[in-house]
Design a protein around this nucleic acid. Structure first.
Lengths: 142, 142
DNA sequence: CTCGTTGTAACTAAAATAGTTACAATGAGG
DNA sequence: CCTCATTGTAACTATTTTAGTTACAACGAG
């Protein structure tokens, strides 16, 4: 199973707001860049707003960034859009038979190892800021 | 979204076969330890058979391990049961608008970073063998 | 006051998961 | 050679999640 594209779309949204910061972007315009429905964008903007990354308002005043992008890592966005629960990347089979040596022990054992695996993945996400992303996009485009 | 419990159940199956190696285990007995339906177990055994980890047969002769557990890592099981596609842990939004600076670049950029993140996670899985797991279970039980 | 946009509810379609029933195919042992 | 337990597999279900869509009330700026 895959981690929801909400994550990469949210990164897209923030990068776009930064790069087009001279324009008052609407959910419609962002949706055009992402190529999806404006409501999908608004839902994600709601989550980004909730964690204080952006500010939106009714009417036509556009979205504003509230934080510098070098203060936001991929991990922060990943948490904001709730694509993976804390320590729950792997679904562990519940209710194994505790009368069995294996059943009684294996979940907890695996839980520790799999949390380490998840941590390793998330550490990579923590090492990249949205500033890094935006810079690379700008370099690619002269 | 979570990575399917097929993975941890498959680990459970292999550990159980090893620990109960003096008995001819049926899918029914394994299902009792896992606490699920025997067909779920048989489906997973089919995948473990396909990659040569076990041997099964009709009738009541039980399952046999074909490999030493120190030759099987968690990663091998994870691949065997196909819980995550190669380089596709993260769903990347396809068809972003390529007429847009951000839309045209962001997917490929993120793809590289997210593959690194996935790699980091899988490296942890590669570092643990089923032998390690079984030993820990046996230690926990005197 | 108007108009455009946001926020949100409600719905849909598609996909994946995990479990269940049912049964033909098969192999081992008597 | 026959029986019987077990496997392998198809077919179906319920549940959950995703991603997209329609619709509209609420709201703020000008």
């Amino acid at each position: 199973m895959k981690i929801s594209s909400r994550f990469t779309v949210a990164v897209h949204i923030l990068a776009l707001i930064k790069i087009e910061k001279n324009y008052a972007l609407t959910s419609n315009q962002i949706a055009e860049s992402v190529n999806t429905n404006p409501v999908v964008i608004r839902r994600l903007m709601g989550k980004l707003k909730k964690v204080g990354f952006i500010e939106t308002s009714h009417g036509n005043s556009g979205v504003k960034l509230l934080k510098s992008l070098d203060e936001i890592t991929l991990f922060d966005v990943y948490k904001a859009v709730e694509v993976v629960e804390q320590g729950r990347l792997f679904q562990i089979h519940e209710d194994t038979n505790i009368d069995c040596t294996v059943g009684a022990n294996i979940q907890i054992l695996l839980e520790v190892i799999l949390k380490n695996a998840q941590d390793a993945m998330e550490t990579v996400l923590k090492s990249v800021t949205l500033e890094n992303i935006v810079n690379k996009i700008l370099v690619n485009n002269g």
